[in-house]
Design a protein around this nucleic acid. Structure first.
Lengths: 218, 218
DNA sequence: AGCTGACATTGACGCAGATCAAAAACAGCC
DNA sequence: GGCTGTTTTTGATCTGCGTCAATGTCAGCT
């Protein structure tokens, strides 16, 4: 079970070695996994739950730069300090590596570094997509893109209910992810429901008119 | 001269090897270095000039995701296709590597891959900064942040005139970088000049009130 | 069941920045 | 210099989304 998400870069032997330096941590809802500018002494791999990744401005404005889902890694950049905070949106279980040990391990496994670079490149693409969203999309397009993205990501996760788009994060988190206010997020989603584009259900939403979303999403 | 910008990751011997697989290319103003979704068959290292990195939407809306300055690398992610276009803002000279050869070289030099990963991590940080800018800053704050960023980046480039913040890109490019319109960019900059925060000079601007910019910038 | 606190929805109104339109500045070029 | 096309600036007006304020909904607790 845990093997699946731990690291696709390694063969069986390397995996066993990696597991030796890993330990599981659990975080309750709202708990901070790590804080912007703290020393980055761990690498995390989420095994269950959802976390929000946040950059804050001195005056309290927030930008959620992403949501971490099961399987996602945090801290692969191996920089000395965290550049963002991570908070548990739901209870989170994460496989945790001491950074110094992980780094030493990576130095001996070029294939792992290459994989880490691929992960970083992928994250950079996602970040650039998100720049387009933040800079150039309307509120309706932002919501459509977000929902399509979440549908795609959940669909890759074993045991998800197909069709259900789980939204464990609150409206405020969605707003801070999309560069909107909570009121606009609420208005747009509810307007979509009135227009029969989606239905709001417990824990998330379901698409009624997939074409509508595909046409609007980035 | 060129040695300085080619690759800080390598020792003298490796550098010589790398140079053997490199060739210089020049691009006139407005010329496309490569296009979104084209096969990525090269890796570039700018040696002179400035390029804009662009993601476009089907309806013509654009997001400039960044500007490449001398010393910057393009294509280090080693993905099969480009995810953005690059166009010369000024005449550009770039050191170009055939991707297949560069990749083979990297596979034999773990230190180079590690350096590439560091570059990607740095770019990811920049991208996250830019998400905060796009999602949460006002027009005035966006311009201040952009100008401070450009000042910082030019100051690291040998032969720049200290104090001058060169802006070779047009107002439209700045607007597409900041998620604004060209009119707003023009208005904000000219208002700053009226307020004696900066002066507009040929090829760029100069700060008059550095404190003002430091206080506003991200 | 009723209470409590957190979160979401809805409505009325305002404003930062977009849009539309025109004039001004500038760069090449003959 | 004068002509031409491009980019920038400036002004007037509009609007999408933010702000402010109230009300509604739901989960957990006693």
């Amino acid at each position: 079970m845990r093997h699946l998400s731990i690291c696709q870069a390694l063969d069986a032997e390397e995996l066993t070695q990696l597991e030796d330096i890993a330990s599981d941590s659990v975080f309750d809802e709202r708990v901070v996994l790590f804080h912007e500018e703290d020393e980055a002494s761990s690498v995390f791999n989420l095994t269950a739950g959802v976390a929000r990744l946040i950059r804050s401005l001195p005056d309290g404005r927030r930008q959620v730069t992403g949501f971490a889902l099961p399987g996602d890694f945090l801290g692969l950049s191996l920089e000395k300090t965290w550049r963002y905070s991570a908070e548990a949106v739901t209870p989170v279980v994460a496989c945790r590596f001491r950074r110094s040990v992980f780094e030493a391990f990576a130095d001996k496994n070029p294939q792992l570094i290459k994989k880490m670079h691929e992960f970083a490149s992928h994250d950079l693409n996602m970040a650039q997509d998100h720049m387009v969203l933040l800079g150039r999309l309307t509120a309706e397009e932002k919501l459509a893109s977000f929902l399509v993205e979440m549908k795609k990501r959940w669909s890759r996760i074993a045991g998800h209910e197909p069709g259900l788009i789980r939204l464990p994060m609150g409206r405020q988190d969605i707003a801070d992810y999309l560069g909107l206010t909570i009121e606009t997020v609420s208005r747009v989603i509810n307007q979509m429901q009135r227009d029969r584009k989606l239905v709001i259900v417990p824990d998330g939403i379901r698409f009624v008119d997939q074409n509508y979303f595909d046409a609007l999403a980035l």
